[in-house]
Design a protein around this nucleic acid. Structure first.
Length: 214
DNA sequence: AGCAAGATTAGCT
DNA sequence: GCTAATCTTGCTA
C-alpha cells in the first residue's frame, strides 16, 4: 500500500474560480483529502455533478432559494457545502463566485491513502464499495456537517492535484427525477470505465484527453 | 407545531 | 429491482 507523502499541496483559490461545468470536469482525478486525529485519508475524485442555481430546478438554490442550508452556496467559490440526505452527509464544492449559488457534488472517489481508517469508519472490508457513492465517501473520509463552509484551500479538508484522466464520460445526473426539465441536463461527469463510480450509466458523450499521443 | 419530501444506502426478493 | 430506515430542512398554518 502506498505511503502517505509528507506534504500534499492544496489547490489554490483560482482553481475554484473557473465556470462550474469546467470545474466539475477539472475536479476529476484530483485528490480529495481529509485530515483527522485518526490520520489522513484521501482518494481520487472519479465522479462529479454540477448544480447551477438559480435556474437549475434540481439545485437546492433553485430560484435563488437562500436559507440556512444553502447560504454557503452564495459565498466564495472553493468552500465546502455539506448537507444531510436522509442519514448521510453529502459533500459539494461551492462554485460560481459570490451571489451565484452554484456547486459541484462529489459522488465518488477512488481510495488512495488511509484505506484502513476508511474501512474502519465504514465497518466494511470491501474496497470496491468503500467510497462508490456520495454518502459513502463522506463517511469513509470523516467529512461531516462540521465541515460546512470551510475552505478547501487549507487543511483539514482540501483538494490537491492527482492524476489526469484519459477520458471523461458525460451523462444525466442521478436521483433528481422530480426536477422537471432539469433532470435531463448532461451535468454528470465521471472518469470513463473507473470501477469506483457510483452507478453505471450510458454516457451521452465522451471527452477524450487532449494529451492524445497521435 | 405539524408535515411532506429528499442530490442515499443497505438488505432482501 | 424494491423498500424501509431515519431525520433534517423548509414550507404552511
Amino acid at each position: 500500500m502506498g505511503e502517505i507523502p509528507q506534504d500534499i499541496d492544496p489547490l489554490s483559490q483560482d482553481f475554484y474560480e473557473q465556470p462550474t461545468l469546467e470545474l466539475a470536469k477539472a475536479l476529476l482525478g484530483c485528490l480529495l483529502v481529509k485530515e483527522t486525529e485518526q490520520g489522513l485519508a484521501a482518494g481520487y475524485i472519479v465522479e462529479t455533478e454540477a448544480y447551477i442555481g438559480p435556474s437549475d430546478r434540481a439545485a437546492h438554490s433553485y430560484n435563488n432559494r437562500r436559507t440556512a442550508r444553502t447560504e454557503v452556496m452564495f459565498q466564495l467559490s472553493g468552500l465546502a457545502y455539506t448537507y444531510l440526505m436522509h442519514t448521510h452527509c453529502l459533500f459539494n464544492v461551492v462554485s460560481g463566485g459570490e451571489e451565484k449559488p452554484e456547486a459541484v457534488l462529489v459522488r465518488a472517489i477512488e481510495p488512495l491513502y488511509g484505506i484502513e481508517v476508511m474501512k474502519s469508519r465504514r465497518g466494511l472490508d470491501d474496497l470496491k464499495s468503500l467510497t462508490n457513492g456520495p454518502g459513502k465517501l463522506t463517511k469513509s473520509l470523516g467529512i461531516t456537517m462540521e465541515d460546512y463552509g470551510s475552505s478547501l484551500t487549507l487543511p483539514p479538508l482540501y483538494i490537491a492535484n492527482g492524476i489526469f484522466p484519459d477520458s471523461i464520460s458525460v451523462g444525466k445526473r442521478i436521483g433528481i427525477d422530480n426536477a422537471g426539465e432539469a433532470k435531463d441536463y448532461p451535468w454528470r461527469f465521471w472518469i470513463t470505465d473507473n470501477k469506483f463510480v457510483s452507478r453505471h450509466q450510458k454516457a451521452e458523450f465522451v471527452i477524450r484527453s487532449n494529451k492524445n499521443p497521435f
